[in-house]
Write a protein that binds this DNA or RNA. Structure first.
Lengths: 130, 130
DNA sequence: TTTCAACTTTAAAATTATGGGATAGTTGGT
DNA sequence: ACCAACTATCCCATAATTTTAAAGTTGAAA
């Protein structure tokens, strides 16, 4: 199938498929005589793998490692688990950071009248912090 | 004072000060005869304002609006509050998304033996989702 | 058969916010 | 006068994706 159909059935846009190939995440695709890329079920399967990993927030570097582990029948599940745990830890760190931001914002917003007068604790906070 | 001192006392790097000026977040700075930028206490105050807003996760577009509101003595606190609430809502959306990712990852990782055998629920999940 | 819409190709650039480097000019103290 | 430390501008890099543009290909209708 051509790239458009592979994109539709895998959920990875044609742009991204070409991009992943360009950066080496996917092996260079064999071309038909007309220079169009040609995809089969196994390539679509790989694309789905990538999309799922992306949906879980993995960066492309990690996705490359996961693809290698997937292809490697002699892999150790230890290595996969380590990647997943490390990524979960990263997510937790970012979540904590954003929660702190949100909590501060909610506090400030709750203290703000939200009327047509200029006085505002939010602006005061932004203006006063050293 | 010169840009280096303004950077130190405001917590915004010299690179970023120049960048903010270039993209119009800050008004073009008057230059001394030697073409060096010159900053006073009010500029440093503005830089601190920007840094605090950045620490709260506001994007530069929002920071521009907040700066306008700060400068505008006839502002309505309603407008400030709306920006803060909108940003808090964005944070909440991202937090929820990342929590869902993390929870899935933790579930999968807990189900994984993490030994030297290849069998792995994490890989299976990535490979099987449509 | 011509033609036209819908595809594909490559390449380049925008996005967001920041950091890094190169090169050149300026300052200030010794 | 000299030299380290500063400043100036300009370009590049990051991460992942979208956008744009220009050019070639296909398939089917008119």
């Amino acid at each position: 199938m051509k790239i458009g159909e592979a994109a539709l059935t895998s959920g990875v846009s044609a742009k991204m498929i070409r991009h992943y190939e360009e950066i080496g995440l996917l092996p260079p695709n064999l071309r038909r005589a007309n220079s169009y890329r040609d995809y089969g079920t196994s390539e679509v399967h790989e694309l789905r793998f990538i999309r799922r990993a992306r949906d879980l927030g993995f960066g492309l570097a990690d996705i490359g490692k996961l693809l290698d582990l997937w292809r490697n029948k002699a892999r150790h599940s230890f290595d996969v688990k380590a990647l997943a745990r490390a990524h979960a830890a990263e997510l937790n760190a970012k979540i904590s950071e954003m929660e702190a931001m949100r909590d501060t914002l909610v506090l400030l917003a709750n203290a703000c009248n939200g009327d047509n007068r200029p006085d505002c604790p939010i602006i005061n906070d932004l203006a006063s912090k050293t």
